[in-house]
Amino acid sequence: MSGLDGLYQQIILDHSKARHGEGPLEHAQAEHHELNPTCGDELTMRIRLDPTHERIDEVAWQGNGCSISMASASVLVDLVRGTRVDDALALAEEFRMMLRSRGEGEPDEERLGDAIAFHGVSKYVMRVKCAMLSWVALEAAIAKSRSHDAL
């Protein structure tokens, strides 16, 4: 797939409208607000952990931005809801590596699931930040949940 269709795969267009996990979250342990100053897009990620703090019981977000950033947040929710915190962090790192690939290589579909649709974004340097917005917010929220910043 080339050009625009490679960037805006149907999965991305669908998620940008369906927006899984969009909304407030009660009893969140941590939240983080992330801003992309070049376009003004912003997003707040909230997480609720299980009592052992090892698993993400619930994740939700609120924000506004382009279709790439909104779809990325929606896919994120599908992927990390109910996973171990460490697995979510590893996935965030894997996602980051894919977006830094400039379109090279074959991302691991097994691990990335629907997030593999964002491989095409890696060819558009100006849009990588859009796709990363929610994942960076998730990483920061997790870091906060492990520090004094927990809610």
């Binding site: 050009g3 625009l4 376009c39 897009d41 931005g65 382009c66 558009y124």
Partner: peptide, 11 residues
Amino acid sequence: HAHDVGQFLDE
């Protein structure tokens, strides 16, 4: 979103 508009126009 304007970013998506710009991307489309760029193409």
